[in-house]
């Protein structure tokens, strides 16, 4: 091996060691555990082959959580990205008080999710909650937002979008400010309408950011469960149970570690597939400067 190669590997070593220890090793451990039962009364976990996966096929709560999670992803990812973009375009323009506006948009990101969820709990409260007070102005009151199966998941999505959009806005704002002003000037000189400039110049230049934001949004859609724990605990009747929440319940309420490992493997596969898909297919449409 050449000196250079050794040098290179040595430089990589710290990161590699950490990744192996905290990412790869646990992944293999989880896959290994998913083929085992759960250790009880000091006896080691027995090998059960694919039984955990068979149980999963029959587990209604798992399927419900999976569907909920897909709807949750579908509801939160596009909404938060579009909202982030709109907010970024708005606060990027020269106007009074934009620092305040930027701060206001970013505040939800800074607040801890547990605190936020407790505040939202009172927004959604029947009768005197903020939402009820607002809707009662239009004569449509008396809804129990978190207590009905039809609206609870939607409420969870609203909280998630509210929390995320400000965070993504920061990335868009940074990207917008790195677009050279000469492009806008050139477009103006050529007489290009603003919409055309936005569609053909700004949005393509924002694509690398969009890809990054999208990857993050997808991960968050499967990772954010704090507000569920505080606000609904997966209820009513599993209407807001997301995959990670189900895993937590199986792992740390039911102590069925073998089955929890199998569920984790499914989550890993889903996330890996989505990430690979995004990088392989979307990368072609992204222009890096």
């Amino acid at each position: 091996m050449s000196r250079n190669a050794i040098h290179g590997w040595l430089l990589l070593l710290p990161a590699l060691a950490l990744l192996a220890l905290f990412t790869h090793w646990p992944i293999f451990g989880t896959i290994w555990d998913s083929f085992h039962g759960t250790a009880k009364r000091g006896k080691p976990a027995p090998f059960v082959g694919l039984e955990n996966y068979q149980v999963m096929l029959a587990d209604e709560v798992f399927w419900k959580s999976l569907w909920n999670n897909l709807w949750f992803a579908l509801g939160t990812i596009p909404a938060s990205i579009v909202l982030a973009l709109v907010m970024a375009l708005w606060v990027n323009s020269a106007m009074r008080g934009r620092t305040w506006l930027r701060m206001a948009f970013f505040t939800p990101t800074v607040l801890p999710m547990i605190a936020v969820a407790n505040i939202w709990l009172f927004f959604f409260t029947p009768q005197y909650g903020l939402l009820e007070q607002f809707t009662s102005l239009f004569g449509v009151a008396g809804r129990n937002w978190l207590g009905s199966e039809s609206t609870a998941l939607g409420c969870m999505m609203v909280v998630a979008v509210w929390k995320e959009a400000g965070f993504f806005m920061i990335f868009y704002l940074a990207a917008l400010q790195s677009i050279p002003p000469s492009l806008a000037e050139a477009a103006a000189v050529e007489g290009a309408p603003r919409g055309w400039y936005l569609r053909r110049i700004v949005l393509p230049l924002l694509m690398p950011t969009t890809l990054f934001v999208m990857v993050n949004a997808v991960i968050n859609a499967f990772r954010m469960v704090d507000h569920i724990v505080v606000m609904t605990r997966g209820g009513p009747n599993n209407a807001t149970s997301l995959l990670l929440f189900h895993i937590y319940q199986v792992g740390f309420s039911f102590w069925d570690t073998g089955y929890a490992a199998a569920l984790t493997v499914v989550l890993l596969v889903i996330l890996a597939a989505v990430a690979i898909g995004q990088f392989v297919f979307l990368d072609r449409k992204v222009h890096y400067q």
Binding site: L121, P126, Y128, L146, G147
Partner: peptide, 19 residues
Amino acid sequence: MSPGVVEWGTTPKDFFEKK
């Protein structure tokens, strides 16, 4: 009674608010 699932945590508050 409020239809659907009623939150445990906000129940005392509902009581204080005379709801």
